[in-house]
């Protein structure tokens, strides 16, 4: 894969250089031609359309641009964490999906984007956090864990006003970024490292006990331990 990518990129680079020198091909004219077509189709957003004065306009200061990037990060998060795509594919797909919404459903960017983000983030975070906590429940099957995770997440969102989770984390990050809280943050992270190392070793011991010889119940424990041995797991 890597070699093929290298060969294709080199071919592209050399053909581009050949076209520029022999055929008087100008990349500076060619790129806008492609992006104009993409913008017309909706795969690339036309962010400057919200500007009052198009000649003297910083698109980053427009609320619609900020909303665009927040929705883009939301899709990135969902595709990366819930779907399990890699980092670059989720950014690319997220970009295309958000651009399409920007073109065909602009009403989305007029509503409370942060509210939408808070809602999705809280749900996803509770789901992932439960997965993190339930790593130690080796006697439970994968399906039971998933069932517990989903039901607790749904209860938290619809009955327990789980949007507080976002406020909690964002307040904490605010303190961390701006002031003495930075030192507290570093100390907390070092403490968490030691705690997670300790509980990780405990869970290895528990997994070994549960596995035993001839045990058939601990399918997840087996895969967790194997992952840990191969350096893939997070125990």
């Amino acid at each position: 894969m890597r070699k093929k990518f290298l060969i294709f990129s080199l071919l592209f680079l050399f053909s581009n250089s050949y076209a520029q020198t022999i055929l008087d091909f100008d990349l500076g004219e060619f790129i806008p031609m492609i992006t104009d077509n993409l913008k017309a189709f909706g795969l690339v957003p036309n962010l400057s359309e919200g500007c009052d004065d198009p000649d003297n306009c910083n698109v980053f200061e427009l609320p619609s641009t900020r909303a665009f990037f927040i929705i883009l990060i939301l899709f990135w998060m969902i595709l990366n964490i819930a779907v399990g795509l890699g980092n670059m594919p989720s950014v690319l797909f997220g970009f295309f999906i958000t651009s399409l919404i920007f073109k065909y459903l602009p009403a989305v960017f007029g509503m409370d984007v942060m509210g939408l983000f808070k809602f999705v983030f809280s749900g996803l975070f509770i789901f992932i956090w439960l997965e993190y906590i339930m790593r130690y429940l080796f006697a439970f099957s994968k399906t039971t864990k998933l069932f517990l995770q989903s039901s607790i997440t749904l209860i938290a969102i619809f009955f327990l006003n789980a949007i507080n989770v976002f406020d909690l984390i964002s307040n904490w990050l605010n303190v961390m970024i701006s002031g003495v809280g930075f030192i507290i943050f570093i100390v907390f992270m070092l403490a968490m490292r030691i705690i997670s190392a300790y509980t990780g070793l405990l869970s290895i011991g528990a997994a070994k006990d549960v596995r035993g010889e001839g045990s058939t119940i601990a399918g997840t424990a087996n895969s967790d331990v194997d992952n840990f041995k191969e350096g893939r797991g997070n125990i």
Partner: peptide, 27 residues
């Protein structure tokens, strides 16, 4: 720092993306 402290890439990714969103929301 989150992947260092918690050892979980998913949580680290979520929190870091939230930090970026907060950075954008605070202009």
């Amino acid at each position: 720092w989150f992947s260092y402290g918690f050892g979980d890439e998913k949580i680290a990714n979520m929190i870091s993306l939230t930090a970026v969103v907060m950075f954008i929301a605070k202009a």
